[in-house]
Nucleic acid binder design. Structure first.
Lengths: 145, 145
DNA sequence: CATTGACATAAAGTCAGGTTTAGGTATTAC
DNA sequence: GTAATACCTAAACCTGACTTTATGTCAATG
């Protein structure tokens, strides 16, 4: 059993955030000892799932709904599974977008590297948009398609 | 040259957002014809960079700073390069985190698949935390490390 | 020549996800 | 016995990134 301060340290989250999550119903049935929250292994796993679902773009109110399903029991397995399947699809799409972003950033790094070397962008402007070095061209094309 | 409406269609962004970006100084030196904004190829590339930098987590006011550097000329190449290097590092870290998120989601999909099949979580609880099928164990370990 | 549609502005409003403030309790440390 | 520390609540506040509202201009259409 952990206090809110210990959990705050463990997860590197402000205490105020943990209290906010609790207020929003993300720890249904969490124990208390004379008013003080007692975080058990169940709440730690809940917190891991919260961080995961948040990162997948889910809103707090929908995470609350998921936690309510967990309390409801086996009848909500299909709801929970569908939720994770949906989030998985969304995160996979997000990864593709982020890779495109990363390729743009890599291209710009090369671009300014070259600009610094040349002292101007003249040569670069002549190479754009389709006479870039092969590996750079790939980055540029993926970032601009 | 494009009108705000055409750019809105091309980038699938609300007109209000484009006007907001302009107000925030993200299109320095954009032309106008009797008050009406004229988006040139320069503004379209700016918009691509805006989307990229936004996705990398940069705030509007810092994107504005970057656009100001672009106007300033060759003396700011190093500033611009450093900005992109920093964003690249941040996005690479983000990709690692997102992969961890994805592994958690994949694990949970398998988990509820199994729970639905079994009708309860008893067998699953016996397998946790280190007697999972090898491929699932990998997902679980990456998601929980 | 009035209405429609696309453009413009300034200023107020919205929203999620916290964070801060103000005030209080309970336990341990000197 | 008082001071520090860790916990508690309710409610107000904050922030960034838009979005909406209210009002107006201008060109082309019926």
């Amino acid at each position: 059993m952990y206090t809110i301060g210990q959990v705050s340290e463990m997860f590197n989250l402000p205490i105020s955030t943990l209290r906010y999550y609790d207020k929003e119903g993300l720890f249904p049935g969490m124990e208390r000892q004379s008013g003080i929250r007692k975080f058990s292994e169940r709440e730690l796993e809940a917190l891991r799932v919260i961080e995961c679902l948040k990162k997948s773009g889910l809103e707090i109110k929908d995470i609350k709904q998921f936690m309510a399903w967990c309390v409801e029991g086996a009848s909500t397995y299909p709801n929970r599974k569908e939720l994770f399947e949906t989030r998985k699809t969304i995160v996979e799409a997000e990864m593709v977008k982020l890779q495109k972003t990363l390729d743009m950033l890599k291209f710009k790094c090369w671009y300014y590297d070259t600009a610094i070397h040349d002292g101007n962008e003249e040569r670069l402007n002549e190479m754009l948009p389709d006479k870039l070095p092969p590996d750079i061209q790939k980055l540029y094309d993926n970032a601009h398609k």
